[in-house]
Design a protein around this nucleic acid. Structure first.
Lengths: 213, 213
DNA sequence: TATCCTTCATACCCAAGAGTATGTTTCCCG
DNA sequence: CGGGAAACATACTCTTGGGTATGAAGGATA
């Protein structure tokens, strides 16, 4: 107890601090406009601290992006694994996905940026590997939604156009909406968040459901 | 007829060439990663040409962004002005919006980038003015959708959650979907485009429609 | 034909920022 | 308590790219 703080933070805590700060900066200013000094200043530190944990700016960004992917996977996995009717599983996944969009907004914005393929100057071999792995994970994630939609189509409980891939994309676009228009505000209540979640999920599920025309 | 071309291009034609090239570059690499030299090289020219038409990179970007806004307004205006039931007007607007997303994909991507508020280093007074005007136009654009939704709610033909603003946002997110996942391909046919349009519009309208639960 | 003016190309300047090299402090371990 | 490694801070290098200053070529006009 040499410091004013209770105890010195562990390495992994420091790592998390850095990830959070980086997510915040990348989210608000974008990749290029965010300098390493910006991230460091966000922590009251300097470049040395950042480069002590990450070999390059690109690797830092990739770490944030990968963390974002972890989050959506974990948020939707219970729904996907659930032993329920297809339609309920899909709705649970949708709900988890939208919740992640709201509660981990910074990481989700970075995740979206990472998927929108600009800035593909993968210099290192490690980065190239990291990228292709990320693409694979994104495909696997979308495949879960496609799988459930296909099951629902087979059952007759769901409906899609001639090309179900487009339907899934549109479905997920609706779920991803908050990334574009939502900003967390100081006075936000959990109730407000849940109201947003429910409305988006309702909209998206209704777009998918089979109705007598 | 001194050249191989029929005649020397007019000033406005040159301007359009520049806008198109800039839209293409900004779309594929993003704002920061696109250098003025990149845009120039895209035209087989050098910086001199670009700076002859635009005072700065930011102004060039803004011009592309504003053009994008022009496009969506023109694409949806007939539907908005039409003398039809609210639901049909909204569907016509949606159809025009999605068509714009596909047929002017580059400009639409830049438009979305411009709305996602990064890079707000508006140095010039002119740029600050340009930005606030653009925000106003975006608000006016979204207001048209909100207006028709409100009319539909009053009629009972449409349905929304407790906060209709969220419903509109989700509706438009679905329409904007192609910005994220669509890439024009060499072999694309108009039929393919129309199929995408119809499916997205169907999905989005169904999410909005009032159904007996 | 002399002279602008337009329309660019070339050459240059300069700041910002990604890395790097090297201190410096603190903590741990023997 | 001494030595080393972790965890940074400081001070530098060097490239990239926005912007500018200037030149050059072609057309229009008098």
């Amino acid at each position: 107890m040499s410091d004013t703080t209770t105890n010195s933070p562990s390495r992994s805590e420091r790592y998390e601090e850095l990830l959070d700060a980086a997510a915040e900066c990348f989210q608000s200013r974008g990749f290029d406009a965010t300098s390493i000094d910006t991230v460091a200043r966000h922590l009251g530190a300097t470049k040395g601290r950042v480069y002590h944990y990450f070999p390059s700016k690109m690797d830092l960004f990739n770490a944030v992006r990968d963390r974002g992917m972890d989050i959506v996977f974990q948020a939707t996995d219970p729904g996907y694994q659930a032993d329920l009717p297809v339609l309920d599983r899909l709705e649970a996944m949708a709900r988890g996905h939208v919740r992640a969009m709201l509660f981990h907004h910074s990481f989700m914005l970075v995740l979206k940026d990472g998927l929108l393929m600009r800035r593909y100057t993968t210099t290192t071999e490690f980065q190239k590997e990291s990228l292709s792995q990320h693409i694979a994970r994104r495909d696997a994630y979308e495949a879960r939604f496609r799988e459930l939609l296909a099951k629902g189509l087979a059952e007759g409980s769901l409906r899609a156009g001639p090309d179900p891939a487009i339907t899934v994309q549109t479905f997920m676009s609706a779920l991803n909406g908050p990334v574009a228009w939502f900003r967390p505000r100081p006075g936000d209540t959990p109730q407000k968040y849940e109201a947003i979640v429910e409305e988006i999920v309702r909209f998206a599920m209704q777009g998918l459901r089979a109705y007598p025309s």
